[in-house]
Amino acid sequence: MDRAFKALLERKLATWLEGPVRQRHDETEVRVRAGDVPQVMRTLHDDSDLRFEYLADLCGVDTGTAFQVVYHLWSDVTPDWLRVIADGIPRDEPRVPSLSFLWKGAEWLEREAYDMFGLVFEGNRDLRRIYLPEDFIGFPLRKDFHLADDAARSPGGGVRPMDRPVPPADADATTLRRTSPGA
């Protein structure tokens, strides 16, 4: 845990922070709104005190109530991993600004997140499925995506063929397998 780094972040990112900067083990975590991601990342990348030049990971998370996009960054100014969570992306309109203007390599990571969660990254010039075939229907890592043999887990729900997904707007407690609003 790098206390000084927490203070630095609170100063630099004051405009965009949603909630406190959290620290645990070797990780420092900030939450921002999805729309603010480009400015936050630009600051983290370009600021001479921060120098987060290395994007370690970009992934989507479905909390059951909303989507998140989680970025992990590395810099030589701190021994911690920096986790930036773009929180509260609505399930029925999952739009996030793309990061490919800063790290071109994020293009494929965003394609993967689109493939698995249906997150639309605005500004990504190659947003198509990367693993699954083009004609695949549904986004498999969403919590309301059930495979046929998932019926055993939720007998009340019965078998829901995966080619007829429940639209996210209609998702309710029975279609969502698990929710974790605190994630």
Partner: peptide, 18 residues
């Protein structure tokens, strides 16, 4: 890298592998 989210159960809530 691995990013894991726990919701208190015995199964990971989200397991990200990169």
């Amino acid at each position: 890298s691995t990013y894991v989210v726990s919701d208190g159960t015995d199964q990971p809530f989200r397991m990200r592998i990169h």
